[in-house]
Amino acid sequence: MAAQDPDPTAEFRRNESWLFDTTAGAYVRKTAVALLTLVVFAFVLFPLYWMVVTAFKTTAEIQQIPPTVFPNDFSLEGFRLVVESSIQAGGYTSLFANLFGWQASSAIDIDILSLVLNSLKVAIGAGAIALVFGTAASYVLSRRDFAGKNALMSIFLASLMFPGTAIMVPEWELVSALGLFNTHLVLIFIYGAMTAPFVVWLMKGFFDDFPDSIIEASRIDQCSSIETFWYVIVPMARNSLIASFIFAFLLAWNELVFALTLLDNSRYTVPPGLLTFVQGFNTQWNVVAAASIIISLPVLLGLAYIQRYFVQGLTGGAIKG
C-alpha cells in the first residue's frame, strides 16, 4: 500500500538536506548552537563574574587554594578597605573619628577619591574640548566644500589610529618642551586631540543627514549662520552631542599610556593609580576587585546611554546602527 501511495509532498522534498530539513538535523544544529553559546559566553562573562565574586570575599578566603567559585560568606571587607584607605590618604582620619567615632585604619594606601577627582577633571575637560571644537568643525565640513576637505577628513580618520603607544615618546618630549609635564591641562589637550576627530566624524554624519529645509526656514526667520547653528541645530543635535561627550569622557577615563608617562604619581588619574595599587597590593585581590568595580561604574553607566552610537563612533560612521 505504502509503495503505491507515495508521499504526495515528495516532489517538494527533492531539494531537502539532512542538516536543515530533518528532525535529527535540527537536533544536531540546536545542540551545536547551544554548546557554542555556552562556551563563548562563559569566556566573556566569567572574568566579570570573577571580579564581582572576588570583591565580596574576605581576605582570608582570597588566599585559599584552590579558590572558591562561590564566596563562603559575603563580605564587604574589600569595599571597606578601599573607603578607609581613601579617608586615610585624604587626611580625613581625625575628621571621621570625631564625627562618627570611627577609627579608619588601613594598611592599604589607595586614595580612590583623589584619583577619581583627577580623572573627572581630565575627562570632563577633554570631553568639553572635543565636543566644542569637533562640532564646530564638523558643521563646516558637512555644509561647505573647499580645497583639501577630503584630505583633512582622511587625516582625522587616520589620526584616530595612532594615539597612545605609537607617539608616547615624542609626546613626552613635546610636553617637556612646552613645560607642561605633570599637569592635568596637557592631558586634557591630548585627550581632546584624540577624541575630537571622533566627534568630527560622528557629528558630520549627523549634519549630512540634517534637512536643508530647516536651515532655510531659520534663514527666513533672519538667523545668521551662527545663530542658526546655536539656536536651531544644536538643540536638535542634543542626543548626538551627549553621545560625543560621553565617548570622549570614557576614553579619557580609561587611558593609561599618557597618564602613566606624563604625570607623577601625586597627580595620577584612575588608570595609572589603579595600576600602581594593583602592583603594590596584589595579594589583596578583594580590595583590588572592589576598587575596580567602583571605578568601572561610571563607564558602565555611560555605556548604557551611548550603546547605539557606539558603532558609529568607532567606525567613523561607516557602519550605522
Binding site: 516532489e11 517538494f12 522534498r13 531537502e16 530539513d21
Partner: peptide, 16 residues
C-alpha cells in the same frame, strides 16, 4: 494546498 497536496510544512525554499 498546491494541487491538493498540503504544503503547510514545506519550507519556502522547497515550495518552488
Amino acid at each position: 494546498r498546491f494541487d491538493d497536496v498540503v504544503v503547510n510544512d514545506i519550507k519556502a525554499r522547497n515550495r518552488d
